[in-house]
Each structure stands twice: as C-alpha cells, then as structure tokens.
C-alpha cells in the first residue's frame, strides 16, 4: 500500500534531502523549503520506502501538495 506525504506549508523547494529508493522513518528530514525568506525543514509524517518524488529543487509548492509517495 502506498502512502502520500504532503507539505504542511507553501514555499519554494530549496533541496530534497532524500532520494527515490531510500527508506525513511517518521520525523526524518525530507525537504528544505523557503518561505518568508527563511528555510524550514519539513519532516516526514510517515515512514517507508520512497517510491516517487513529485517535486524538484526550485519548484514552488502549495500547502498540501503531495511531494512524495512511500510504499
């Protein structure tokens, strides 16, 4: 079963801290977002193997966008 990870806030993707195929755990750092001229770390809300990453560095994302899918 796949699980979706959504962003909690809008911003610009500074860097993606995991790769497809990585296994991550809940609360691992997965993204660096820039919002209000500040970098914010986004933590995983769930654990699993990263199946697909839907974003790339420099993308502008909105709140609740699905950024990666875990399996």
């Amino acid at each position: 079963m796949s699980k979706e990870i959504a962003t909690p806030m809008a911003g610009k993707v500074v860097s993606i801290l995991v790769n497809e195929g990585d296994t991550i755990q809940e609360d691992d750092e997965i993204l660096l977002l820039e919002a209000m001229k500040m970098e914010t770390t986004v933590y995983a809300t769930d654990g699993g193997k990263v199946k697909k990453i839907n974003i790339k560095s420099g993308d502008r994302i909105e709140e609740d966008d699905i950024v990666m899918i875990l399996e």
Binding site: P8, M9, D27, M36, M38, T40
Partner: peptide
C-alpha cells in the same frame, strides 16, 4: 514582519517537529 513570526516558527519546531507555526504566526 516577518522576523518575529520566523522566530516563533523555529521555536515551535524545536518543541514539536510537526508544528509549522509560520503562517499562524504571520
């Protein structure tokens, strides 16, 4: 603006990683 909101956000994440207070503080 927006420094105070940023400070609150950073403090919030230190206390609870899943808390994103930035927009609430804005």
């Amino acid at each position: 603006v927006p420094m105070a909101a940023r400070v609150v956000h950073v403090m919030g994440q230190k206390e609870n990683k899943k808390n994103y207070l930035l927009m609430h503080a804005m």
